[in-house]
Nucleic acid binder design. Structure first.
Length: 120
DNA sequence: CCGATGACATTTG
DNA sequence: TCAAATGCCATCG
């Protein structure tokens, strides 16, 4: 054996580059109600098609008073992030349902069914 | 500077 | 279809 992947741990994100963060937040704010956008989608619109993870980092560092519909941002799998704290996602799920999106208790939803169509 | 981790995505078996 | 591996970039110790 020589090489092998590694498990996960925990990280406390501080504040990403204002530029990247601002752009991402701007894109998320552009997401219309009842529509869903994936991290890669937002990242691409932000100008970084190859940085879906950093988008998640930005969203993870969002303030509580955030007015951005970050709950409309999901992964390509079609499930709300939460990554270990689905209880938090649970509230997000309720909001998505309020937007008119069908979401399971597990956080599974139809991304393709509500794919946000970005337009210049 | 190097190693490890991450609200992900994509490809291969 | 699902599981595992790989890739990409940024941040942290």
């Amino acid at each position: 054996m020589s090489e092998r992947p590694k498990p996960a741990k925990r990280v406390e994100p501080e504040v990403l580059p204002p530029d990247f963060r601002t752009v991402v937040l701007a894109v998320v704010a552009r997401i219309p109600k009842g529509k869903l956008a994936s991290y890669g989608q937002v990242a691409a619109l932000a100008g970084f098609p190859q940085r879906p993870r950093q988008v998640g980092m930005v969203l993870s560092g969002l303030p509580e008073g955030t007015k951005l519909p970050w709950h409309r941002v999901v992964n390509t799998r079609g499930y709300v992030p939460s990554r270990g704290r689905w209880w938090g996602a649970f509230e997000q799920i309720g909001r998505l349902r309020d937007e008119g999106i069908a979401v399971d208790d597990l956080g599974n939803l139809d991304l393709e069914a509500h794919r946000w169509s970005p337009r210049s």
